[in-house]
Amino acid sequence: MSEDKRGFGIYVHWPFCKAKCPYCDFNSHVRAEIDEAAWRESYLKELAHFAALTPGRSVSSIFFGGGTPSLMNPATTAAVIDAVARHWRIANDIEITLEANPTSVEAGKLHDFRQAGINRVSLGIQALDDRELKFLGRQHNADEALAALDLAAKTFARFTFDLIYARPRQSVAAWREELTRALSFAADHISLYQLTIETGTVFEQAYARGDFQLPDEEAQSALFEMTQEILGGAGMPAYEISNHARPGSESRHNLVYWRYGDYVGLGPGAHGRLTLDGRKIATRQHRAPERWLEMVAAQGHATRQQDEIARDDRVSEMVMMGLRLAEGIPLARFTAETGKEMRDCLDAARLARLIGGGFLALRDERLLATESGRQRLNAVLGELLG
Rank of each mutant, 00 (worst) to 15 (best):
L255P: 08
F156A: 12
I90Y: 00
E327C: 00
E217L: 10
R366L: 06
R114G: 15
K134E: 14
K109W: 08
T76F: 08
E327D: 10
A361N: 01
M72W: 01
D364G: 03
G267H: 00
A79V: 11
H29V: 15
R158Y: 12
H189F: 04
L179H: 12
G358P: 02
E250F: 03
R374T: 10
P15C: 08
E46P: 11
E217G: 04
W292Q: 00
Y239T: 10
R273N: 07
T338Q: 05
G386E: 07
M1L: 12
W14C: 03
P237C: 10
W39Y: 13
D130G: 10
H49R: 12
G56E: 05
L385N: 09
D150R: 15
K134S: 12
F159M: 11
I230C: 12
E144A: 15
P15G: 03
C17H: 01
A348F: 08
G56M: 05
G117Y: 10
D313C: 04
I96T: 13
T54G: 03
Y260I: 00
Q194V: 06
G137D: 07
T199C: 04
Q299Y: 03
Q115N: 12
R343P: 15
L223S: 12
E178M: 13
E204C: 09
F16R: 05
D313A: 13
G65F: 08
Y43L: 05
A37R: 14
A219L: 13
L325H: 09
L255W: 03
E383M: 00
D93A: 12
E327Q: 09
L214R: 12
F64M: 06
R86P: 05
D130P: 10
S42R: 14
D143Y: 06
P168L: 10
A91M: 08
G382E: 06
T199W: 00
A352P: 07
T97Q: 03
E132L: 07
A75D: 13
G339H: 01
D82S: 15
A245C: 08
D216P: 05
T335P: 04
D262M: 08
A48K: 10
G386M: 01
A166V: 06
R353K: 09
E41A: 15
L381I: 13
D347S: 11
Q228Y: 11
P268M: 10
S70G: 09
N27E: 00
L53K: 13
L163G: 13
F8S: 04
F64Y: 01
M236G: 11
I230F: 08
A145G: 15
S2G: 13
I10Q: 01
E317D: 11
